[in-house]
Design a binder for these strands. Structure first.
Lengths: 143, 143
DNA sequence: TCTTAAATATGATTTAAATCATATTTTAGA
DNA sequence: TCTAAAATATGATTTAAATCATATTTAAGA
C-alpha cells in the first residue's frame, strides 16, 4: 500500500524537519547514516522531493538539503503522492480492479473505512507536527 | 500491505464459496477464467491453500477444488496469513522497523488504528458471509 | 577564474514478487 | 490394470521495486 521508498522519504524529511533550516543545510551522507538508508538510494529520493518542491536544496560547497518554513507545513500525504504516485492510496486496499462505494468489491466495506481514515490523517498531519512529537518524546526516530 | 497473490487467493476462494461444494468440484481452468487470473498462477495459490487445509481438493478425473462446509467458516485473514505470512499485517503500516504502542514510530498513531480496525474485520468476516453478500447483490465479483 | 564540494540527471544492477512451465502423483472409469 | 484427467511439486522466467554507480552541473571560496 505504501512503498518502502515512501517510508524512507518520510524518515528523511522528518530528519530534516528536526535538524535543518535555511541556515543549517545537511548533505546526503549526513542524512543517510543516521536514518540508516543507503546513501545513493536516499539521494535519489531526496532529489525527487526537491524537484517537486517538497524540500529545499542548494548545490555546491556549503550546500545540502533543508526544509524551509513553508516546507515544514507540508503534510505526510504529499510525500507519499510524490514518491508512490496518486493512485496508490486511492485504490481500494483489497480490490484489484476499480471498485468504489457504488460498485463495491466483496470486501470493499471491510477495507474502505480504514483506508479513508488513514488517508485523512496523512493529509491533515504536517511534517512540523510530527517533528514536534519527536521533540516532545511522544515518538521516536528512526521509524 | 496485502499482496496481489492474497487478493487473487481471496477472489478464487470466494468463487469457490459461491459455486462449489463436496458434490460440485471445480478444476483450475474453470476457476482461473471467470476470475481472470492466469491459470498456472492461481493453480499454485490454490495448491498452497489446499495444503494448509483452507480449501479442499481431490485429484484425478472428476477431481477439482471445492469448499467444504468447514472451509466456508474460515475467515479472510486466514487466507492472507497463508499466502503472505503472519508478519505482513501485524507490522505497523508505515514503520520499517519494529514499532509498537510502547515504542511508537513518529507516524505510529496515525496508522495504527486503521490497521487494527482492518485486521479485526478481516478476522471476523467469514468466507460464507462474503459469499452471501454477493448472492444478495450487496457486492460483486470479481474483486 | 580555478578548484572543490555539493546536488542533479541518468542509467545500470540486484532482488523479490509475480508469472509461467512441466514432470510427477493420484484417482475415476473402462 | 490401463488410460486419461485432474491436482501436486518443483523450479524457471519475467517484471517491477529497490538499490547502486557515475558523469554532469552548480556554487562557494581562494
Amino acid at each position: 500500500m505504501i512503498s518502502n521508498s515512501s517510508k524512507y522519504a518520510i524518515k528523511a524529511v522528518l530528519f530534516l524537519a528536526i535538524h535543518s533550516d535555511e541556515e543549517h543545510k545537511i548533505m546526503v551522507k549526513d542524512i543517510s547514516e543516521p536514518i540508516n538508508v543507503p546513501q545513493a538510494y536516499i539521494a535519489k529520493l531526496l532529489q525527487e522531493l526537491a524537484k517537486q518542491k517538497l524540500i529545499s536544496s542548494t548545490r555546491g560547497p556549503k550546500g545540502g538539503f533543508y526544509l524551509s518554513e513553508e516546507d515544514k507545513k507540508r503534510n505526510v500525504m504529499d510525500i507519499v503522492n510524490v514518491i508512490d504516485g496518486e493512485k496508490r492510496l486511492n485504490a481500494c486496499l483489497l480490490s484489484l480492479e476499480r471498485c468504489n462505494s457504488d460498485n463495491p468489491c466483496p470486501i470493499h466495506h471491510l477495507a474502505n473505512q480504514s483506508r479513508v481514515v488513514l488517508m485523512k490523517k496523512l493529509k491533515k498531519t504536517t511534517i512540523n507536527e510530527l517533528a514536534l512529537d519527536v521533540k516532545k518524546g511522544k515518538s521516536k526516530l528512526p521509524l
